[in-house]
Amino acid sequence: MRYPATAICTLIGLALCLFNVTGYDPHNLFLMMFSVPMWFVELFADLHSVNVWLMYALTVLSWALIGYLTDLGLSRTRARARSRA
């Protein structure tokens, strides 16, 4: 099984973090919208008290997990289609 969605989603997570690090996202708007771990941190803690590098790592890992689950679902769907034919 190849993992194209995992690679693409991981690159999306990396691009999101790099966009934030470069300063083009000064108010963390895009990071807050597209980072799943930051949604949960916002519910339970103050964002300013959390290590930003940990949030970057968790963001990339969560995007990689989303891609992996997508690849897994696609491979199962394709396997079912092949078994029916």
Rank of each mutant, 00 (worst) to 15 (best):
L72H: 10
R84M: 10
T77E: 10
F30N: 04
S83Q: 15
L72W: 13
L18N: 09
L16H: 07
V36N: 04
N51Y: 08
C9Q: 05
G73Y: 05
L11K: 02
L11Y: 04
A45P: 00
L54A: 13
L69A: 06
T22I: 14
W53R: 08
R80P: 00
L72K: 05
V52W: 07
M1T: 08
G13R: 07
M55I: 07
F34H: 07
F40A: 06
A45V: 05
P26M: 10
T70D: 02
S62D: 04
G67E: 08
A15R: 03
Y68M: 02
V50Q: 01
L61E: 00
G73V: 12
E42K: 13
A79E: 09
V36I: 15
A85E: 10
R82E: 04
F19K: 03
T10V: 04
M55E: 07
Y3W: 12
N28H: 14
R78W: 06
S49L: 06
F40T: 11
W63C: 09
V21L: 10
W39M: 10
I12A: 12
E42M: 11
D25S: 02
M55T: 02
A7T: 04
V50G: 01
I8T: 14
L58K: 07
C17G: 07
S83H: 07
L11R: 07
L31G: 05
L29A: 10
L65Y: 13
Y56I: 00
R82I: 15
A64G: 11
A5K: 13
Y3V: 13
